[in-house]
């Protein structure tokens, strides 16, 4: 049934750090690669080498410019994948039961053999986290790398989402957000993690860490002139030259 579970044992999800993301798209490529070779139908592209290439991705990086009232504008890279919402509207609209939220860990998944490709779940998601595969015609979405995180054939350090494993800036963190003691929960606590579009009432599990306020001019103080007036030998050269 596509009724949502009233309670999940854990709430696995991602914490995405907008302060450190450098917008390199490495996680996009890692996600595309992993999900093309593993769980479910390969994540396809259509007309990949033609004039109108189009492809499905489970994770995409936007970039936004934020212009404060005073001071220079700031560029924020903004990774976006499924937020594994607790009140996931994408699940309840599904007519076939293909979309579901797991009780054991809260991951929202699509059973591809049941999906009729009606697209209604993608309409119901406010975040644009679901894309219909252009070749298989079934709904694709982030699986939280369910085929990595429990996969005992992988070395222990690889049992986390491909995007998290790949990120060179450490901007993506994976863990149980229902456990206040987990590193991700503490990170959210310490950095004031937020929900996207809280007014949509989806109760997303994934959290975003806002950019930190800081003096971004780390190097400028080191480049200040150290002595206004020349002293010693330089002072003598200076006066000698001045007299000429």
């Amino acid at each position: 049934m596509t009724d949502l579970p009233t309670h999940t044992d854990r709430s696995l999800g991602l914490v995405i750090d907008l302060d450190t993301c450098v917008g390199c798209h490495a996680c996009v490529v890692a996600c595309k690669g992993w999900n093309t070779e593993n769980y479910g139908a390969p994540l396809a592209d259509a007309d990949a080498y033609g004039a109108q290439p189009i492809g499905s991705f489970l994770n995409r990086i936007h970039s936004y410019e934020v212009q404060p009232a005073e001071g220079p504008a700031q560029l924020v890279h903004f990774p976006k994948s499924c937020l594994h919402c607790d009140d996931a509207p994408c699940v309840t609209v599904c007519p076939t039961g293909a979309s579901y939220k797991r009780v054991e860990d809260g991951i929202v998944l699509v059973n591809e053999t049941d999906c009729i490709g009606c697209g209604l779940c993608a309409w119901a998601c406010p975040y644009g986290a679901r894309e219909l595969d252009p070749v298989e015609k079934v709904m694709k979405k982030c699986t939280l790398c369910v085929d990595r995180i429990y996969n005992e054939t992988l070395p222990e350090e690889d049992r986390e989402p491909a995007c998290v494993r790949t990120c060179p800036a450490g901007a993506r963190h994976f863990g149980d957000l229902s456990d206040p003691q987990s590193t991700v929960s503490q990170l959210v606590e310490a950095r004031g993690g937020i929900d996207l579009m809280p007014e949509q009432g989806t109760k997303p599990v994934n959290k975003y860490l806002p950019p930190r306020d800081r003096d971004i001019d780390l190097l400028a103080p080191l480049l200040e002139p150290v002595a206004e007036e020349p002293r010693g030998l330089l002072a003598w050269v200076d006066t000698a030259l001045g007299k000429l």
């Binding site: 995409r60 936007h62 970039s63 936004y64 700031q74 924020v76 903004f78 993608a122 929900d195 579009m197």
Partner: peptide, 27 residues
């Protein structure tokens, strides 16, 4: 609210995630 960046200033889409259209933009 979509980006959660509103409190910091005026937010403007600077660069889309990809150069072409995708399922979301088409649909």
């Amino acid at each position: 609210t979509a980006t959660g960046l509103g409190a910091r200033g005026e937010v403007r889409a600077f660069e889309p995630p990809h150069t072409g259209p995708n399922y979301l933009t088409r649909e």
